[in-house]
Every structure is written in structure tokens, then in C-alpha cells.
Nucleic acid binder design. Structure first.
Length: 215
DNA sequence: ATAATGATTCGCT
DNA sequence: GCGAATCATTATG
């Protein structure tokens, strides 16, 4: 994997696109950086999932559901949607599309590139290992992302930003069913909206190699 | 006010 | 591979 990182923040136009599935693919290879009280950590996004309210049963905003939690998803693209899962795990999502259109991309795994020591400490590990950020809850902890950052905008003065970088070749993107959709009936459960970089050791789960970028 | 659920993780077998 | 941990969030009364 040769991924280039720039120091350019992704422009608002990246997030304001109306195709959240495409945004999820395009976020692969980008760099997420947090600055939490001066502690800088960065990682390359290697796995994502698309959630598309209102027609997606797997999405919190399915059927236009509006609650105190989900209202963040209705913000315009370029905001963070952070919520707590299983009562303890923070999940980092990027809101996309236009205001009122509840689409978001869950970041499921990153490859650490800056601030390894800080991440190891936050994860209470004694050394770097692939398990440090290979899951949505894990990477959020490693990056210091907490629920209090919910609804914050991803601009140059935000504690969370995403930097542009080289695009991943289509041939190097695999897709498959999203994780945790088993109970959802209908074809929503089978929509291959989980994306990951092929053969990347930092993804959360081994490949479910049924697809190669086609659906 | 109460009960059910979960876009997970970790430890143990 | 399996099950517990643990509580925010939601729906319902």
C-alpha cells in the first residue's frame, strides 16, 4: 500500500455529495487527525461503512427517524456523528450529503501513522499491535474521540479533521455486507456497503471475499 | 418510570 | 468460537 498524505483538509464539497456510498469508498486512504488538548494522533482510514437514511433499515435515521441522538445525522455533510454503542463504545461517523438528508459513514478501522505512543496509552496496551485500531470502538478510543465531540464540524479549527490523500485504486477496494446487520430483514442487510482496502492488515475483520467492488 | 436492544470488545475455552 | 460486560438510547405506558 502506498498512500500519500497531503496537509490539505478535505473541502466541504467532498462531504456535500449526495451519494454516501461513493463517499464511503472515497474516504479510504484519507487521513483522520485529532488534536485533543494538544495531543496529535493520525491514522489512514482503511475501512468504512455507509448508512443511508431514510431508506436503509440498518441506519439510525431509517424512515426519517428523528431523536436526540440521530438529529446530528441531519446536519449538512462535514460534521462528526459520535454516539455510544453498547453503552460504552464511541462510534465515529462522518455526516455526508445535504442538510436534512441523514447520511453518514462509519469509520471502522485505521492504520496509525502519528502519535503511536499516545494511542497505545489511550488503549491501555503496552505496545503497538494491529488490534489497536481494527474496530470502530477501538479507533475512536485511540484517537481520543468522545461523545462530547458529537456534531462538531470537521473544519480547520476542529479537534477532528480529515486530510486529503491519494485515491485507492478501484481494484484495491473490496466491499461486503455491513457488520451487525443480521437481524435486519430485506435486502438492506445484504447491501455491500462495507468497504476496505484489499489485503490491508489493519482492517477489523478478515475479508468476506464475495465481491470486488461490484454490486 | 421501566424494559428491551445494540453499527462492540475482551477474555476465556 | 462463545458469552459476559455495561449503559446510552429508544419505545412504550
Amino acid at each position: 500500500m502506498s498512500i500519500t498524505k497531503t496537509n490539505n483538509i478535505l473541502p466541504a464539497s467532498f462531504y456535500l455529495r449526495t451519494d454516501v456510498v461513493q463517499c464511503a469508498k472515497d474516504l479510504l486512504g484519507k487521513t483522520i487527525r485529532t488534536n485533543i488538548e494538544g495531543q496529535i494522533t493520525e491514522g489512514i482510514i482503511v475501512e468504512t461503512e455507509a448508512y443511508r437514511g431514510p431508506d436503509d433499515r440498518g441506519c439510525h435515521a431509517y424512515n426519517h427517524r428523528m431523536t436526540p441522538r440521530t438529529k446530528t445525522m441531519y446536519l449538512p455533510g462535514g460534521h462528526a456523528y459520535v454516539y455510544i454503542c453498547y453503552g460504552m463504545h464511541p462510534m465515529m461517523n462522518v455526516v455526508t450529503s445535504l442538510e436534512g438528508d441523514a447520511h453518514a459513514v462509519l469509520i471502522r478501522a485505521i492504520k496509525p501513522i502519528t502519535g503511536h505512543d499516545i494511542m497505545v496509552q489511550r488503549r491501555c496496551m503496552d505496545k503497538m499491535s494491529p488490534t489497536i485500531t481494527n474496530g470502530p470502538g477501538k479507533l475512536a478510543i485511540a484517537l481520543g474521540i468522545e461523545k462530547s465531540l458529537d456534531a462538531c464540524e470537521l473544519n480547520d479549527s476542529s479537534p477532528i479533521i480529515i486530510l486529503d490523500g491519494g485515491e485507492i485504486q478501484e481494484d484495491n477496494i473490496y466491499c461486503g455486507p455491513r457488520v451487525g446487520m443480521t437481524k435486519h430483514v430485506g435486502d438492506c442487510a445484504h447491501r455491500p456497503w462495507r468497504f476496505y482496502i484489499k489485503d490491508n492488515p489493519w482492517v477489523s475483520k478478515p475479508l468476506v471475499v464475495d465481491y470486488t467492488g461490484k454490486w
